[in-house]
Design a binder for these strands. Structure first.
Lengths: 136, 136
DNA sequence: AAGGTAAATCGTAATCATTATTATTAGAAA
DNA sequence: TTTCTAATAATAATGATTACGATTTACCTT
């Protein structure tokens, strides 16, 4: 996902182009790490001192619902990052030091074909945590 | 994990036997679902109207650190349940309706033997969410 | 270009889960 | 029983997130 794609999706769904929205998206486009609402606010208040939490959270919710951002919960806080480009389902290794991620092409659900008959599976979560080569 | 085991561990580590502690453990022993701090408090305040959050959270932290309870994050809230009896590493299916769990004997890390060389893996999370046969 | 309208934002307060603080109570060892 | 210390109660503080009324802005229409 890049800036252009994101704006196409937003426009298609009737969302207006605002400078705040654009800067939030730019921050994600230039950062492969997972970021919190506070991370965003801290950076953005340099350019827009009046930026409020409401604006940040409202836009994050919009972006997630449109599939522009993906979200996960790390140590009790919601974290966001650009939706991956790769078109096939995958999971993530997340570095607990620098926050960078690495795609894991394997999905454990592939092995569980008939392991849960009678169960209705809605979704699943698989994440690996540790240190990336640079941080080790 | 059962009550007796839990108390053995607590005693071995110098923790005192109190009625609050015992009731918290009994609630977990009789409920296979994941519970929140609020779930516990709501039930326990019937017997102990003066029960406070501090007591609940402090004991939850103790129990988790001693391996009596296990913890996971579900929709932004910390949830707890008795540590499973099974001695070998596994994961969980969690019913989003009734909260009951089912053990999944497969671990995706088994498939990732040399998939992450140079990475230091600290831990991982694999959970499946959906509806159990009774709730479907 | 000007005006109208709904969306977006601001400023701030409220809420919810969790943690911290201080005084008091209660296990359990001597 | 006395004493020591862990455990608890009551309450306040914190931090993330959500809500709300007032204001501003994007953008559509004329």
């Amino acid at each position: 996902m890049n800036l252009t794609n994101a704006w196409n999706i937003l426009k298609d769904n009737g969302f207006k182009e605002t400078s705040k929205r654009n800067q939030i998206l730019e921050l994600f486009a230039n950062d492969e790490r997972y970021l919190t609402a506070r991370d965003l606010l801290d950076v953005m208040q340099k350019d827009y001192p009046s930026m409020s939490y409401d604006t940040v959270y409202r836009n994050l919710a919009t972006f997630v619902s449109l599939g522009i951002l993906e979200e996960t919960e790390l140590s009790g806080e919601r974290h966001f990052r650009m939706q991956c480009e790769s078109d096939h389902h995958h999971h993530h290794f997340i570095c607990m030091d620098c926050g960078k991620i690495k795609e894991i092409p394997v999905c454990p659900m592939d092995m569980l074909g008939a392991a849960l008959p009678a169960y209705e599976i809605a979704n699943h979560k698989f994440e690996i945590y540790g240190k990336c080569p640079e941080c080790k």
